[in-house]
Design a protein around this nucleic acid. Structure first.
Length: 271
DNA sequence: AGTGCGGCCTGTCCGC
DNA sequence: TGCGGACAGGCCGCAC
């Protein structure tokens, strides 16, 4: 389940091996991802040099002069640098082969991820054009959240997980940030006052920031390892702890479902 | 327009 | 021990 910190860690991990390097060949073993891998990916990306590796939300963009490979890791995807000829693991669906003798290997058991080929400005692509601000940017502020949430009746947790509001806040970090901010996940978004917006924005930034820093220590895993940096190394206060005592007040944590997602919170500390 | 839900997938876990 | 079913979740696309 790569969340934004994992995607950013992946970006940093693969960048040194891809930047200004030529993609010699693209091998698609299993095109049936969330969307079919287009034939144009192999025909157009082969022979191109990667000019930049960017991240927008949980999307990675491999930019070339001719176009952009847009990659999403979905729920179970990962990218790693394999040595060409290295035995394939189950669900190694796509290889981007480099001249160095390595290849960027896309692995995704559940196939919720995608790899698309975009020509023209990738940020005008429908998948990217309507996305909300980056959570770690100054555009994501208490004032922004207050304005955006006005009149909205959806629960605040569902709201902050909406990529059109702010990108990159997945279920785990939504639970953690709401606990840290002392906000009830079920609270209607439109009832948030500026002070609550301030603490929620602050905690979202803090939890993501911390996770990226932890991810940075596992960068070496992108070559020869399993390519899966983890948020599990950080202490989770509520996620997966339903029924256990709140670390703040010892009240048993409650769980419910919001938008079909596991939601865990402290009934005493969060309101 | 906003809200909520179905569907895509497979690995893991649980109960029988 | 083996088996089937529930569950997990990002995010689009649809229905209300």
């Amino acid at each position: 389940m790569p969340e934004l910190p994992e995607v950013e860690t992946t970006r940093r991990g693969i960048a040194p091996y891809l930047l200004n390097r030529k993609i010699m060949k693209v091998v698609v073993r299993e095109p049936r991802l969330r969307w079919e891998v287009p034939a144009s990916l192999a025909t157009e990306l082969a022979g191109q040099t990667v000019s930049a590796i960017e991240r927008r939300g949980k999307y990675l963009l491999l930019r070339t002069r001719k176009g952009t490979a847009l990659i999403h890791l979905g729920m179970s995807g990962s990218l790693r640098l394999a040595v060409v000829g290295e035995p394939l693991k189950k669900h190694d669906h796509v290889d981007l082969v480099l001249a160095s003798g390595r290849c960027l290997r896309f692995h995704d058991p559940r196939r919720f991820g995608c790899i698309l080929w975009i020509e023209g400005d990738p940020y005008e692509h429908p998948l990217l054009a309507e996305l909300g601000p980056e959570p770690l940017s100054h555009d994501f502020s208490a004032e922004y959240l207050l304005g955006k949430s006005e009149g909205r009746t959806t629960p605040i947790k569902t709201f902050i997980m909406d990529s059109h509001v702010v990108v990159g806040v997945g279920n785990i970090y939504a639970n953690e940030a709401l606990f840290a901010a002392g906000i009830d996940p079920m609270r209607k978004a439109g009832t948030m006052m500026i002070e609550r917006c301030e603490s929620l924005v602050r905690e979202i930034k803090t939890v993501l920031d911390r996770a990226i820093k932890v991810g940075g220590t596992t960068l070496r895993d992108f070559v020869g390892g399993d390519g899966k940096p983890g948020y599990f190394s950080q202490t989770l206060q509520v996620y997966g702890r339903e029924g256990q005592p709140c670390n703040n007040c010892m009240t048993p944590l409650k769980d419910s479902r919001l938008g079909g997602r596991a939601t865990v919170y402290c009934p005493r500390c969060q309101n």
